[in-house]
Computed example of a mutant assay.
Amino acid sequence: MTTTIHLAQQPEADALLGRSPLAALIGMLLDQQIPMEWAFAGPYTIARRMGADDLDAQEIAAYDPEAFAALMAEKPAVHRYPGSMAKRVQQLCQFLVENHGGDASAVWKGVKTGKELFERLSALPGYGTQKAQIFTALLGKQYGVTPEGWREAAGAYGEQGSFRSVADITGPESLAKVRATKQEAKQAAKAAKAKKQ
């Protein structure tokens, strides 16, 4: 099943995200402390540097850790912290190999409820509560993975018509709206902190 995705804002990188569940999971994992497009272009960069059209969890899990860190650090780096993120990507892939036969889509295949989906995502290395909620929303809003109660499991990120996260990005216009929402949230947090002092 191929989905049209616009998270990396680059056709080849977005095409990979649309056809590869592993690419989507890795993009979400990388989405911290760097711009969203950079994070979601990461899986395509990794695949290209590995000389592949797609990503393979078993191949990444078995990759020499130093060589994989070097691949992530090669200019332009896949992430601002290529060394630590290389470890996280490999841990994620090792978990998928050990628990899901290396099939990333097995994380959500056959889930009956949003709660179960959220719990499965929360169990992934590098996926805290917020990341698991955002990915639950992304699966529901853009990948057609909609078990009963998925919006509730995704929290505020599951709300219809919201522009809170990558789950809501379908093109440049919605990307700008999500950016604006994030800026407002940051400013509100700063203002609240200043009031306390």
Rank of each mutant, 00 (worst) to 15 (best):
Q160V: 12
V178G: 05
G171N: 10
K131E: 05
A123V: 13
K182A: 14
V145W: 01
Y127F: 15
G128L: 03
K190Y: 06
A176I: 10
K182V: 12
L139S: 00
R120P: 03
L139Q: 00
Q160F: 05
A189Y: 07
V178N: 09
R179Q: 15
A153W: 04
Y143R: 15
Q142S: 10
A123R: 15
A180D: 12
P172E: 06
Q187C: 02
T136E: 00
P147Y: 04
G161V: 13
G149W: 03
Q133C: 04
L124C: 05
Y157P: 01
T170E: 14
F135I: 04
G144A: 05
A123E: 10
G158R: 00
E184W: 06
R164P: 04
A123H: 14
R120E: 02
S165T: 07
A156Y: 07
T136Q: 00
K131R: 15
T136P: 00
A176Q: 15
T136M: 00
T170Q: 09
Y157Q: 02
E148H: 11
T181M: 09
P172G: 11
L121A: 02
G144K: 07
A180N: 09
S122W: 10
T181Y: 13
V145M: 02
L138K: 05
P147G: 06
E173Q: 15
A167P: 07
A154P: 02
Q130A: 15
G140E: 01
V166S: 09
F135L: 09
A123F: 13
F135K: 05
Q160A: 14
E148A: 15
A176N: 09
Q187D: 13
A137R: 02
S165L: 08
Y157K: 02
Q183W: 05
A156G: 09
P172N: 10
E152M: 09
G126A: 11
G161C: 12
P125F: 13
A132W: 01
W150A: 01
W150R: 01
A180M: 09
E148W: 08
A156C: 08
W150H: 02
A167N: 07
K186G: 07
G149K: 03
A156E: 15
A154V: 06
A176M: 13
K131C: 15
A185S: 11
K141R: 10
G149P: 03
S174D: 13
T129L: 09
I169Q: 12
